[in-house]
Write a protein that binds this DNA or RNA. Sequence first.
DNA 1: AATCCGTCCAACCGCCTCGGC
DNA 2: GGCCGAGGCGGTTGGACGGAT
Length: 282
Amino acid sequence: MGLQPLEKAKPKYKKGLWSPEEDNKLKNHIVKHGHGCWSSVPIKAGLQRNGKSCRLRWINYLRPGLKRGLFCKQEEETILSLHQMLGNKWSQIAHHLPGRTDNEIKNYWHSYLKKKVTKEMESHEQVHHATSSSSETMDSSSHTVQNLATQGTHNNYNFTNEVACQSSSLPKLLFAEWLTLDHEQCGGNSANSYDESLALKNGFDNQISSFQESATVHDTLSQGLFGGDYHNDSLIHNSASEMYNNSRLKFGTTMEESGFIHCMAGVDFSGNFNMSNDTMYI
DNA sequence: AATCCGTCCAACCGCCTCGGC
DNA sequence: GGCCGAGGCGGTTGGACGGAT
């Protein structure tokens, strides 16, 4: 028996939890020499692990500047809004949360935020269901509003909704609803729709102001709690309106992917841009 | 006290991309 | 252009833990 002639003898790597001794070896090695080529790290550090495992351990646990413990409200909101815009791009989301790892954020999402979002969606659906069953005069375009809203809340946590929730005096506004209202305004379906969309847009402008305040708080937090790492952070440096524009553009992409691009007619994208392979060039 | 069950989180796995040859 | 190795990423797994029964 034994090894097949052509089979490479694979080194036996240790798996499972890391011991404090292993942590020390890895940390000392990287502090002294840097990681360089990860595949050579375990050899040089005297570890029975593979390079990938060392890299993961360093990034997720040993790296300096990691924040441990509970996520604060601000971090939670950042994750929710970024997840709404980016989807499961955990590493990109992690870039906006200094001291947090993609793995940590991913775990937090699956164990807590996902449930929270699902709950919100269900409550939204109940409201929509109640509205549709009580209204017999709903026309086809209103159905589109409903479908879009459901799509929006199903696939992505609603960023604007989260912002609106922070300001109790503002109405909750779904992107899809706002967009469709805009669309209806363009089609000139009714004078009321124009007034409503204006009112809603004004409401959204207020929400942006609200978010700007929130971003300011975030900035302060970032300087205080995160040791100024956020100064290089594009999310924080972007104005709230930029974030809003980006989220709108992303939403447009989502709409296109979902076959709803026809609903985007007449939507003001607040500037010129090109779309290529889901990348926006403004 | 023992067992069951759900949750959390560290770590693994597989896939993809990129760069060097 | 194809191959290979390294690095990076997201999905999944499995063990530890705590609460419920």
